[in-house]
Amino acid sequence: MPSLTWYLTLSAVLFTTGVVGVLTRRNALIIFMSIELMLNAVNLTFIAFSAFLGDGRGQIVVFFVMAVAAAEAAVGLAIVIALFRNRRTVDINDVNVLKW
C-alpha cells in the first residue's frame, strides 16, 4: 500500500506543474486548464488525508472545490469568449490595459 507521503508528493508535483503552466503559457485557455490541474492536485491532498485520517469531511471539501471549479469554468470561459469577441485573441500578453 502506498503511504501518505507518496500521495502528497504526487500532489505537490501536479500542483507545481499547474504553477509552471500558469507562469509560462500565454494562452488564456491553457492557463485556465493549468488552474484546473492545481485544483485537482489540492483535491488529491484532501482525499489522501481524508482516507488516511478516517475523516469524511475532507471529501466534503473536495465536493465544494468541484462546485467552485464548475462555477469558475462557466464564468472563466465566458470571459474568454467575451475577450475573443472584443479583441480577436486569447493571448494574455495582448490584454494589458491594467499593466503598469
Binding site: M1, S3, L4, T5, L8, T9, A12, V13, F15, T16, T17, V19, V20, L23, T24, A51, F52, L53, G54, D55
Partner: peptide
C-alpha cells in the same frame, strides 16, 4: 523563470511533506 519558480515551490512542498511525515498514519484508516 517559470521553471525555476516551480522548482522552488516543489522544493518547499517536498521539504514540508518530509518534515511532517513522522506524524502521518502509516496505512489507510480503518
Amino acid at each position: 523563470a517559470g521553471i525555476l519558480l516551480g522548482a522552488g515551490i516543489l522544493l518547499i512542498f517536498v521539504q514540508a511533506i518530509i518534515a511532517a511525515s513522522v506524524s502521518y498514519p502509516s496505512s489507510l484508516a480503518r
